[in-house]
Write a protein that binds this DNA or RNA. Structure first.
Lengths: 242, 242
DNA sequence: CGAGCGTTTGAAATCGGTCAACAGCAGTGG
DNA sequence: CCACTGCTGTTGACCGATTTCAAACGCTCG
């Protein structure tokens, strides 16, 4: 874990448009530039924070990816989400002033560190930022709600289709090639996220290959038939994915 | 759905200590009393809001209980949560300015209606309220995260034990008898919440009765062996439950 | 009292889990 | 360059928990 003090400017950051609100005045932009006082570089497998640790900061991902995970005392663990660049993490720490999940890098990753008290203070001054924070928190809730339906009511095929289409959508939002997925997580981790076993992940992917939905080469997945994946997941394909 | 305009005072409300922050100055209390401009009475089965409806308000429950539910176009639906008096609902509407779930009364229920824009404005002025809002949002996230682990990694016994202990904890927080549960939801709804079928709910409850964990009389459940339920759910019993 | 709903119970079917063997690839060291 | 090891992922065969299907029970209410 490499710490780096910065005079980083969010107003000039390429990721800024994902993690911060648009339409700030130049004065507001200046204030926001004080938000990130340091950045952290993580190697694959390194933890950013863990359950029970006291909460001070939220983070935004600059590059790389992380998983967040919730565990019971007996070791049973559920992967809650995989996070991509631009996404804000650590929000579950606000409620009780301590993180309620573990967060681990899936590859070499860099995150911006934002002191949450300072964030709250700024939010009082900048209505756009306040609104933005509330939206981020609320969207985290709706994300989790969709995930709940996936775990509670879908079968293995539908779960995998949900996972793949969800990832594709998030890449599309980032204007990346959303039909070529380069997974940073293992089959084990996909399984934990979806509440199925690694063997089932593997078998289901093989089935998708047979059905000509995808091509798989290790952790590289090429989506051949996006429409069929959406049908499998019982989801309407969003307009922006056409 | 009966609407009622009110000059209701949160500062005098018995539920206030659950849905609002403590330690407000008298001036702040006055401001907060303007938050609730109306209340809504719902009969069993009536909807408070539904997926796609445009978002203006969040609600706090005065008495009764509701379920929130997320559905796919094909009708497949997951119950996300059951909400008790004092809890704030409608937060998933903030993210996209429209509710992302359906909310339905499980019994005769009354809710306070709070305009969210006004709430945000007040939050700018009253730091305690701002902090409180963030905590409510964050706790909703951690709630969902625990639910995710339940759906993804626990078996039917553990799921039911999670449900029962969770309910008991929330009654305890409200200083109610937490060993006598009077369920307002059907077996069907419990099953949807836990991602299992109604028959499995029934069978598992019967198993608990045999093991002398609980006594069941229709929708009344008496907890006999709380400790065993916690063991089943792999949870440590919180100190305040002893 | 009978209709209708919600719930319980039993038997059979099924999906995904478990166990086990093996394949593929990367890294190590002779 | 080729064993050797270790890790990840794939595939097969079998097993078991939960679902599905079916029947019966027991409230509630007109």
């Amino acid at each position: 874990m490499k710490l780096e003090l910065t005079h980083h400017q969010c107003s000039n950051c390429v990721m800024g448009r994902y993690c911060l609100p648009l339409g700030l005045s130049s004065k507001e932009s200046e204030l926001i530039d004080q938000l990130v006082e340091k950045k952290i570089k993580l190697e694959k497998g390194e933890m950013l924070y863990s359950q029970g640790q006291s909460f001070h900061s939220i983070f935004s991902i600059r590059y790389g990816s992380v998983k967040s995970e919730y565990s019971l005392p007996d070791g049973c663990a559920q992967i809650l989400n995989f996070h991509l660049p631009g996404e804000i993490i650590g929000l579950d720490g606000i409620g009780k002033n301590q993180y309620e999940s573990d967060c681990t890098a899936l590859e070499n990753t860099e995150v911006c560190v934002m002191d949450f008290n300072r964030f709250e203070d700024l939010a009082k001054e900048i209505p756009t930022l306040q609104k933005h924070l509330h939206q981020i928190l609320s969207r985290e809730i709706t994300q989790d709600q969709k995930h709940l339906l996936t775990l509670g009511h879908l079968n293995a095929d539908q779960k995998l289709a949900f996972f793949l289409t969800n990832l594709a959508e998030r890449l599309k939002e980032r204007e990346q090639n959303f039909l070529e997925l380069h997974l940073s997580m293992s089959r084990e981790e996909i399984g934990s996220y979806l509440g199925i076993k690694i063997e089932t992940v593997s078998r289901t992917l093989s089935k998708f290959i047979e059905n000509k939905c995808i091509q798989v080469n290790q952790r590289h997945i090429k989506i051949i038939d996006l429409k069929k994946l959406y049908q499998l997941a019982n989801k309407d394909m969003p307009l922006f994915m056409h």
